[in-house]
Design a binder for these strands. Structure first.
Length: 821
RNA sequence: GCCCAGGUGGCGGAAUUGGUAUACGCGUACGACUCAAAAUCGUAUGUCGCAAGGCAUGAGGGUUCGAGUCCCUCCCUGGGCACCA
């Protein structure tokens, strides 16, 4: 018998599948389309990470099940090679990004090809291919034409190291998503996408899609919807009004002062009247220069009162002071608040520090209830009633005609009385799309001086090619390197034909990846970004797997772009899902080494090539799948691979012995081969569906043991088929060895017969006071009476009863008898 | 501070959703084969105990005939948000 030679087998079948196009779906004629998608890699590092191998093979296992279940599976692959990720890497290793793209493409496709996945190689897509980014630019124009792309001057995030602006989503607790540098603020005019028009759709869509809870809550938090009212406060002896946003209009009578952000326009409007204007200006300057770091650390609240100006509380017409403090942010709500120190922690803290009046207007219920699950704590009550802080439910007091009402009822009544307006505020801000970098799709917009406006490039002129230039490095100014090339930016106005200037910024990488799955359905289309027929056939994506770190980055953008395209009538797939592009999303876990995240600086990076060479890809796939459920992470250790190698060798020997007639049953038969076969089919099918490959493999291991002691043709075939998604090469080789001319991977997945799932006997568990005292094998259809009788007759049960009469005997069908004494 | 996901042997992890806790794999020990080693195969392997039998699923309470699973209080780990009014 030939030894299991994985090198030979794996090479043989990979070449064979490629030649035969085993995994190429017919994009036009497919009858049961099924789209499995993995986040395509950005080739920023030398090669594929071991975690990447696990995800890719993990999605492949799922896709292979679907294929064998009769679906036309598309499992596309491509490279997200445009953008700052790859450019930063190219700069680091001293290469031109274009050159790096060529090199990394070769290496990545080699590695991806060596994993034995059922990739649809014909449909691959690279975001830096002009035939691809042509449509990224086209997409930008559609957004612009529909009012969803616009320019505005704003205080934007600036990464000094990457020398570009960033979207809010790309700033992770004050640091750049790419390089972890501290992000600063700059006042710049930039292109934005109007994602804030879609807050409600993005929120309500979350309830309809089958996505990981963690991702859905992350998106909900990020969007940050809060419901309240906007209320005007008059400034005494002035026409100015101070408009505030509050979620607690019910506490209006307790508003004892107001706070505006340092950037608030009221300061300049009332410059003449503010007696301490110098002090106020000084404070303004101070908070402007405060870095995010200082703001975070300096939890102690600061502020200055506006001397000489007071506001009027519209509920009770009392005069209240106005303060400037940087705990009020200019970017949220109206940039001004009414402060209710009795019922808001921040206002409470501020009022105590500056000795401002605290007027309670909510009476806590008696006794004080504990907070409902999921709600924040209610704050604390102190003995001095004047200084109480209460943020829980209750009834209104000190509020004239509203006294005695429940606060929920009073909310809108009080709003109405002061002619306030109900209002919903969001934390989400528009997507900043410009980047002052080289390696990305040039934004297809043109500024015409004589027309005095921005115009979209004519669609027939796309793509606007990224010029081949030597000086590609970021300039460090607020201009992209392309601004140094008149040949690139000098152009004609699409409207008047006069001299005009091209936008020199490129678009965010996340725009490239926001629509790539669409292109996979029709990658060679030269007339459209994809044909409607193809999109309607293949979309939405059935199963998407990727990293949870993209929860509010890629995964938010991808939904936004799809829903927006849907809205502006460019796509019509997934209409019944409100344009949601992805039916199911699962986040995979993180692979660690010795409990730590793999990183170059720690020197604990696993090179997948090395391991594939040493153990073979089938063993690696099995190991990575067996480690833990796909949605969980796990620690990589070489020793564990050995167990899977042993298993594959046993499989190899088993089928060899079956084919060449040397099979000798072992004598430790535990279960009936037919039963275990059908049970295993059920379990493996369900486990793969749930991405619990570890338990599926474990079930196959148990089944193999049984096959070694008792065999059956149906078992032989079923086992081989079930192992196929996990170890596609060895199983294909065995399938051929058994005489098949066809590929195993397009065969029909085995089905179980429910009649074999039922056992004719089971182990009846006997408990006395909840403790296990005996187990006895009884027929499956035993009656309750007989079961109880047999249970009480057990020797050990009699000993433990010690002659006492049971108080109660409980019978659970098919399981146990529980005796209480 | 808030939200989400977790916490089970020496290790990775199972547990039919309230019913025999620790499946499967790794590791370890002993045995077989071998001159020997590796590989392979077999047996054992939560813990205390000679045994009967206790005790064990982050800690402590509760519900139940019965809790890893449900409820309450708390502690740790990972991730997200964070002066958002």
């Amino acid at each position: 018998m030939a030894k299991y030679n994985f090198k030979k087998i794996e090479k043989k079948w990979q070449e064979h599948w490629l030649k035969e196009g085993t995994y190429e779906p017919d994009l036009d004629k497919a009858k049961k389309p099924f789209f499995t998608l993995m986040m395509f890699p950005y080739p920023s590092a030398e090669g594929l990470h071991i975690g990447g191998v696990r995800t890719f093979t993990g999605v492949d296992i799922y896709g292979r099940l679907k294929r064998m279940q009769g679906h036309d599976v598309i499992e596309p692959i491509g490279l997200d090679g445009f953008g700052i990720h790859s450019e930063n890497y190219a700069i680091k290793v001293g290469k031109h990004p274009k050159k790096h793209a060529v090199d990394s493409e070769k290496n990545f496709y080699r590695q991806l090809g060596s994993m034995g996945n059922g990739f649809a190689w014909n449909e691959r897509v690279e975001t830096y291919d002009p035939e691809y980014y042509r449509w990224t630019q086209w997409l930008f124009i559609q957004m612009f034409n529909n009012g969803l792309a616009y320019r505005k001057k704003a205080k934007v995030n600036w990464c000094p190291k990457c020398a570009t602006v960033l979207a809010d989503e790309q700033v992770l607790s004050g640091e750049c998503e790419r390089c972890s540098s501290e992000v600063t603020k700059k006042d710049l005019e930039q292109w934005f996408f109007k994602i804030t028009d879609y807050t409600e759709k993005l929120l309500s869509g979350l309830d309809t899609i089958d996505w990981d809870d963690a991702v859905r809550t992350a998106q909900r938090n990020w969007i940050g919807r809060s419901e309240g009212a906007e209320i005007n406060f008059k400034v005494k002896d002035s026409t100015d009004v101070l408009r505030v946003f509050t979620t607690r209009p019910d506490t209006l009578y307790g508003a004892t002062y107001m706070v505006i952000s340092p950037e608030h326009e009221l300061i300049s409007n009332l410059k003449e009247r503010i007696k301490n204007i110098n002090e106020v200006e000084k404070y303004k300057e101070l908070s402007k220069n405060k870095s995010d770091e200082e703001r975070k650390e300096g939890k102690e609240k600061t502020g200055v009162a506006l001397d000489g100006v007071v506001a009027i509380n519209p509920a009770n017409n009392k005069e209240i002071s106005i303060w400037v403090a940087d705990y009020v942010l200019s970017g949220y709500g109206t940039g001004a608040i009414m402060a209710v120190p009795a019922h808001d922690e921040r206002d409470f803290e501020f009022a105590k520090k500056f000795k401002l009046p605290i007027v309670p207007v909510i009476k806590p219920p008696q006794p004080i209830p504990s907070p409902p699950p999921g709600a924040s704590a209610f704050g604390h009550l102190e003995s001095n009633i004047e200084a109480d802080l209460w943020v829980g439910p209750g009834t209104i007091m000190n509020s004239e005609e509203f006294n005695g009402k429940d606060l929920e009822d009073a909310k809108w009544a009080i709003t109405e009385k002061v002619k306030g307006e109900r209002k919903i505020n969001y934390r989400l801000r528009d997507w900043l799309i410009s980047r002052q970098r080289y390696w990305g799709p040039p934004i297809p917009m043109i500024w015409c001086d004589s027309c005095g406006k921005w115009l979209a490039e004519k669609e027939e002129n796309l793509p606007i090619l990224l010029p081949d230039v030597k000086e590609f490095r970021p300039t460090g100014t607020d201009k992209s390197p392309l601004a140094n090339f008149p040949k690139f930016y000098e152009t004609k106005c699409p409207e008047c034909g006069g001299d005009a200037r091209r936008e020199t910024d490129v678009s965010d990488t996340f725009l490239d990846s926001a629509w790539y799955y669409i292109r996979y359905t029709d990658p060679k289309n030269k007339k459209e970004f994809a044909s409607q027929d193809r999109m309607n056939k293949w979309l939405p994506v059935d199963m998407y797997i990727g990293g949870a770190e993209h929860s509010v980055l890629h995964l938010l953008y991808v939904r936004f772009i799809s829903i927006a395209l849907h809205d502006i009538g460019k796509v019509s797939f997934a209409k019944d899902m409100g344009g949601e592009p992805i039916t199911s999303f699962r986040a995979h876990g993180l692979i660690t080494k010795d409990g730590a995240k793999m990183s170059k600086s720690k020197g604990n990076v696993i090179d997948p090539d090395e391991y594939m060479k040493a153990y073979g890809i089938d063993a690696m796939r099995m190991y990575l799948a067996f480690l833990a459920p796909l949605t969980q992470g796990g620690d990589f250790n070489d020793a564990g691979i050995k167990g899977l190698t042993r298993f594959l060798e046993r499989v190899w020997e088993f089928y060899n012995s079956r084919t060449n007639g040397t099979y000798k049953p072992k004598e430790n038969s535990k279960e009936d081969i037919k039963k275990i076969t059908h049970k295993t089919i059920k379990k493996v099918s369900e486990d793969i569906e749930k991405l619990q490959y570890n338990t599926a493999i474990s079930a196959l291991m148990v089944m193999l043991s049984q096959m070694e002691s008792e065999t059956d043709d149906f078992a032989d075939v079923s086992f081989l088929f079930m192992l196929a998604p996990f170890a596609p090469h060895i199983t294909e080789e065995i399938f051929e060895m058994r005489g098949s001319k066809e590929s195993l991977h397009t065969q029909k997945w085995p089905e179980y017969d429910a009649k074999y799932l039922v056992d004719d006997s089971f182990n009846l568990v006997v408990q006395i006071n909840g403790k296990l005292r005996a187990t006895v094998e009884v027929p499956f259809d035993i009656t309750e009476e007989d079961a109880k009788k047999i249970a009480l007759e057990q020797e050990n049960v009699e000993t433990h009863l010690g002659g006492k009469e049971p108080k109660k005997v409980i019978y659970v069908k098919g399981r146990l008898v529980s005796i209480v004494v």
